[in-house]
């Protein structure tokens, strides 16, 4: 993993020095363990603060929206797919970007580690496939694959789909992954069971909107939650309004979500709202053979009108 960091610094140094970019967007170490933070490097001197490890889950595409500079950006598989979507949706131009691709080995789930560890987590270090957690009471080692983020466990696009530089050889994609076992499990339930499930799932929501703020797909000048005419939904903690918010947010991500996990990671109360977006992701794959952000040549499944649509119903 340290090889990644060295290579990132080396590339960034070069790009900033020869003025191919005005800034590099990457990560630096955070003040808390497992909380790396986004970092914008504008001068070559700061390059040595850039790092890479299994705590770089934040989707950096968010920082590209409507920027006008030339930018170097560090991108995992999911980030790269969101960059593709950003380019398609005119949020940034391809020629503004130097994409520094990172073949990703998965990010760790800090909540899970905090839960497994006894006492406050003081430091976390890692090797290729193990995570060592130091707490007040001692040290514990976990297999990395056991503490991966849920979305990383089922990820089949770990390598960047688009890049100008690559910090390492592509990693092997995970094979024979059942990506939608959780969605199918819910689909199979009876309506009343589903109702109860979603009731419980969304009950803790405090409408802080961290999920939508963390999401690179949310960039409208005025979000529907803030609109007053028409008022799409109330501002209250009424369960109906909470559900409306989550359902509509998910619909806005249909055909565009890359399951980067930003929403779930950002949620302060630990709601897995990815279940909603994943259902739509699955439907897009099943019905249109579509996965978001895989190519610059085609817009999202629900974004196009084609008279030669193969679906018989349209004729």
């Amino acid at each position: 993993m340290s090889g990644y960091t060295d290579k990132i610094r080396e590339i960034s140094q070069r790009l900033l020095k020869d003025c191919s970019v005005e800034m590099i967007i990457g990560f630096r170490k955070g003040t808390q363990p497992m909380m790396n933070e986004p970092f914008v490097v504008r001068s070559a001197e700061d390059v040595d603060q850039l790092i890479w490890d299994s705590n770089c889950g934040i989707n950096l595409t968010n920082y590209l929206t409507n920027r006008t500079e030339k930018i170097g950006i560090i991108a995992k598989g999911c980030d790269s797919r969101n960059i593709v979507t950003h380019i398609l949706e005119n949020k940034i131009k391809r020629d503004q970007l130097v994409i520094i691709g990172v073949p990703c080995r998965g990010m760790i789930d800090r909540r899970r580690i905090a839960m497994l560890a006894e006492g406050e987590v003081l430091a976390v270090t890692e090797t290729d496939d193990a995570i060592v957690v130091k707490t007040g009471t001692g040290e514990n080692e976990y297999k990395k694959s056991d503490v991966l983020q849920q979305n990383c466990k089922v990820c089949v696009h770990r390598n960047p789909v688009i890049h100008d530089e690559l910090v390492a050889e592509p990693v092997e994609e995970q094979q024979d992954i059942d990506r939608y076992a959780d969605v199918r499990d819910i689909e199979a339930r009876k309506p009343e069971e589903k109702w109860a499930f979603f009731d419980e799932l969304l009950a803790p929501c405090i409408r802080c909107y961290a999920c939508k703020n963390a999401c690179p797909l949310c960039y409208c000048p005025t979000c529907f939650v803030d609109e007053a005419k028409p008022q799409w939904l109330g501002k209250s903690q009424d369960p109906m309004d909470i559900r409306t918010f989550h359902f509509l947010r998910a619909y806005h991500c249909a055909g565009r979500c890359t399951d980067c996990g930003a929403c779930e990671r950002a949620c302060p109360v630990g709601i897995n709202m990815r279940l909603l977006t994943k259902k739509l992701e699955k439907d897009c794959l099943d019905q249109y053979g579509w996965e978001a952000g895989m190519s610059l040549d085609s817009r999202p499944a629900l974004d196009i009108y084609r008279p030669d649509d193969p679906e018989a119903f349209i004729k």
């Binding site: 529907f224 799409w232 109906m240 409306t244 359902f247 509509l248 619909y251």
Partner: peptide
């Protein structure tokens, strides 16, 4: 719009 469907149910 899905918003109409949700509004009607609400």
């Amino acid at each position: 719009s899905p918003k109409f469907a949700l509004a009607a149910l609400r």
